[in-house]
Design a protein around this nucleic acid. Structure first.
Lengths: 343, 343
DNA sequence: CTATTTTTTGCAAACGTTTGCAAAAAATAT
DNA sequence: ATATTTTTTGCAAACGTTTGCAAAAAATAG
């Protein structure tokens, strides 16, 4: 029935004008308490709901944040979303969530629609096949508040929230070495993505420190998904490559390897040590060591950073780009502890 | 620099009017191909981006769908979101995603903001502590296109996409019985939520069919999370309650039980059989039988239903409320197959 | 009781679109 | 050439808000 009640309707009922109604509902000091009460009562009575579209159009800003992730149904990103959402809600912002399905095209498409929606700012983690940064430079040039997290464009002067990936990976590999493993494989991702480049660097660093010569034939690129991990492991076994541990840049590829090894009858951790990355919830269940990334905090931090930027701009504060680095933690479980060396 | 380019700016540059520009950009047949080309070229050149806020205000409908789930970081819902998102994107709709954190208050709050955002329609799965339906009746009365999925209000005349929960649960329990288990516990949820009521009904039905008398002391309500499952299991063991299997209405509570049993030295499936519900990805890893719910399809179906409803209204088609029932599948794994009876 | 100040209200413009209707321009028919 | 039709363009209103400024009402001062 009462299709849509507007402030106009309320004004008519009350024999007053829309300005009065608007101000009353917004608790403007210009309005007497009596009228305020009157208006509010009538508004409630008539079932008035503010039209935020109209409001947004009127005053430019939209109180909606855009959030773009590679995939929603992955624990890491789901947790980040959760973190962002909690802060956004707290500050009265809506969230527009998109996924790029790890494709640059979809990523650019999503950004485009987010911009058309006039979001107040954007939080993004890049697709795994992203290469160039000019796209984001453009967003910055246009003055859209932006925060990148996890998979970022390091070269860009932009707010970013990242993991100390190198040190996380370093910790993992160092741990493997301390456990007595010698020939450690690395399952990594494309070096064009900061996180994989950095995790690789951590691997290299730990080996160097232990004076183990780097053997590039032990390094496998773009082994990130469970399928890829399993397939890669299978090929390695077929080729009878000699190794005794795997430091994976992804829990999923580690899982693939784990399943393949188990099926092939290898003993973990006695014959092969295994460490993943991200501490996805399944790792606990199968006793796989991994690197905790504090994903929820990452989301909360990203949201806070973005909101500060947005509000700073509104106040005309000097612009500033911050980089927050979250220090990860190695979670040691069974998969990387050789029985005879367990303390 | 070029803060925001509007059709007005384009019109000025081209010495024409906004109506022409608008029509040209929208490929109206009223405009000559030459002007269309001219306008489009200029628009691209000036970096014009349509302001969808203005567009939405102008023509009422918003091409944004509201999606409200209890929790984002849970595989089932993440997959549903994924499904909804794929259809929405395909049809050119945005998605506004909210979570209720399983609280009715937050749920109502979220619905309120979704309505203020003037979403074209809403897809919702209710909080686990939801009781009454009048809230949703109101939304229906206001003519907002609505689809409920999974946790729905069965009594309401509203579009719904649900699982055949009863038959899923029935299959699970029947399977346990066939495997030779006799004293089967049920870990359930509040009966005010359709899914738990129905899963309980399936449990009851399977027992009745096998002529096993129903023993209410074997039924535990509100054992849904991993923590609850673990705690409940612990108490059961302490009380030395006699049982040989568990049919859980949630994979998470089943997981809790699994861990507690394992810790207590019980053998699964030899001493205790276990079946969960939802087929969360971790179930495969630990070999736990479960009921597949086709979550991505559920999301896609919900989105399609909602879009049909929305477009039907625009065309003034007769209103209709559909109920889609997805038939679940029992996935049998190790946790419910007694060694000696394995075929 | 009038003059001044303070408080409260109303008018009207603006945000960026889309679109019905009228007007102008171009094309066709006489 | 003019009259008629068809194609293309422009004018102006509308969507529901917020807000600067002027006007009215109420309160205070003289």
């Amino acid at each position: 029935m009462s299709r849509k009640v507007t402030i106009k309707d309320i004004a008519r009922e009350l024999n007053t004008t829309i300005s009065t109604v608007s101000r009353a509902l917004n608790d403007s000091p210009l309005i007497s308490i009596q009228t305020k009460a009157l208006v509010k009562k009538k508004a409630a009575e008539m079932g008035y709901r503010p039209n935020s579209i109209a409001r947004q159009l009127r005053d430019g800003r939209s109180r909606t944040l855009g959030l773009l992730v590679p995939r929603i149904n992955r624990a890491f990103f789901a947790n980040v979303i959760h973190g962002v959402e909690s802060i956004a809600k707290q500050e009265g912002y809506q969230l527009l969530i998109c996924q790029s399905n790890d494709s640059v095209e979809e990523e650019e498409e999503a950004i485009k629609t987010l911009r058309e929606q006039k979001v107040a700012g954007i939080i993004v983690s890049r697709a795994s096949d992203a290469i160039h940064d000019d796209f984001y430079q453009e967003i910055l040039d246009d003055g859209i508040p932006l925060v990148m997290f996890d998979r970022v464009a390091r070269s860009l002067n932009v707010n970013q929230v990242i993991n100390a990936n190198e040190s996380g990976s370093y910790l993992a590999v160092k741990h493997l070495i301390q456990q007595g493993y010698q020939k450690i494989l690395h399952f990594g991702g494309p070096l064009s993505i900061n996180v994989y480049q950095e995790r690789y660097a951590g691997y290299v660093k730990a080996l160097a420190e232990a004076q183990i010569p780097l053997d590039e034939s032990l390094v496998f690129r773009t082994v990130l998904t469970q399928e890829e991990g399993q397939k890669c492991m299978k090929q390695i076994l077929e080729r009878a490559l000699s190794f005794d541990a795997i430091a994976a840049a992804s829990d999923f590829s580690a899982l693939g390897a784990y399943l393949e090894l188990e099926q092939a009858g290898f003993l973990i951790p006695d014959q092969v040590g295994l460490v993943g990355f991200a501490n996805e919830s399944f790792t606990e269940l199968i006793g796989m060591s991994s690197v905790e990334q504090y994903s929820v905090d990452m989301g909360m931090t990203s949201a806070k950073l973005l909101l500060e930027e947005i509000e700073g701009r509104e106040k005309g504060a000097p612009q500033m780009h911050r980089q927050m680095v979250i220090v990860p933690k190695l979670v040691v479980r069974k998969s990387s502890q050789k029985g005879n060396e367990r303390r």
